[in-house]
Every structure is written in C-alpha cells, then in structure tokens.
C-alpha cells in the first residue's frame, strides 16, 4: 500500500488564507457588554409571552418568536448547574489548565450562563453558589467577568 512512497515524495501545500473575522455584537449584545464594562452589572432580556429571562440577552424569543424589549438586571451570583475541570492546554482556551468550565444559573435568569471557575477546583460541586469576579481592565467582552468564585 505504501509502495509508491519509494518512488514519489509526498508533498503538502500550506494555505494562505487567514480570515480576520470581526462580528458586530448588535444593539442588544452591545448593551449587555457595555453594562458589564462600565457598571459591572449583568443584564438580561425578558420575553413578554413566556416570561423567560435570557442572559446573555437575546433580541427575540426563539420559541415565542417575538421581540424582547424588556431589560432586567440579573444577580452576579448564582448556582453551579454543571461543570468540568479542564486539565489540558489549547491555544483557544481562555486560560491555562487547570480551570473549570461551568453552567451557572444566575439568580433571576431562566437559562444557564457559561463561564469559568479558576479557584478552589477541589471544592467545586454542582449546586454550590458562586459569585462573579470582574476584571480590573474591562474592554466590553464576556471575559470582563474574569471568573466566578465559590461564595
């Protein structure tokens, strides 16, 4: 099967494409990001039909298919619903291992918020309460919340 390798050198070609993607956060997303940057406050949107509160905010409720105009302030505390502790490194991960990715149900929200836990990894359990720690340098980014810590 690999006989041909005796006769021909197998070559590869490197691509030249590196696409500099930039996404608009939109009016709804920008309002959330500006709020965590400037006021350290977490905002969500509420559906007037089903009453669900979404964080990060969405412009329309997918199930009810109506626009959501009502903004609500969400607590910076909540409960760990599920988590994993990461032990390997990858350039796309926000920090080096070990750290935890967690689904956190913030008080006042109806969906889970995805974020990081960096400390007390040996003590993390689903159902424990955590609090948001804001970064000192904030740029209007989901990681303006540095991570969550056990209360």
């Amino acid at each position: 099967m690999t006989e041909w390798l005796k006769d021909v050198e197998p070559l590869t070609l490197k691509g030249q494409i590196a696409v500099p993607y930039t996404w608009w956060a939109g009016e709804t997303g920008s309002r959330f990001l500006v709020s965590i940057r400037d006021k350290r406050k977490i905002l969500g949107t509420k559906c007037k039909e089903c009453g669900k509160v979404f964080v990060p905010p969405r412009k329309n409720c997918g199930r009810c298919f109506t626009n959501m105009e009502e903004w609500v302030e969400i607590a910076d505390e909540g409960v760990i619903k599920a988590h994993t502790i990461v032990h390997y490194a990858h350039p796309l991960q926000p920090v080096g291992p070990p750290f935890a990715y967690a689904l956190i149900r913030l008080d006042g929200a109806d969906v889970d918020f995805l974020h990081l836990i960096k400390k007390d990894l040996d003590k993390i359990r689903n159902g424990l309460r955590v609090k948001a720690i804001f970064s000192e340098q904030r740029t209007g980014h989901i990681l303006d919340i540095d991570s969550f810590e056990l209360i």
Binding site: W23, W24, G29, K59, N60
Partner: peptide, 13 residues
Amino acid sequence: SHRPDVTSREMIH
C-alpha cells in the same frame, strides 16, 4: 454596507 445594530441571527429574524 454594514449593520452594526444586529447580529446575523437578528438580521435573519
């Protein structure tokens, strides 16, 4: 030319 006010998902809506 650009829609800073919406994401593509919101534009689809």
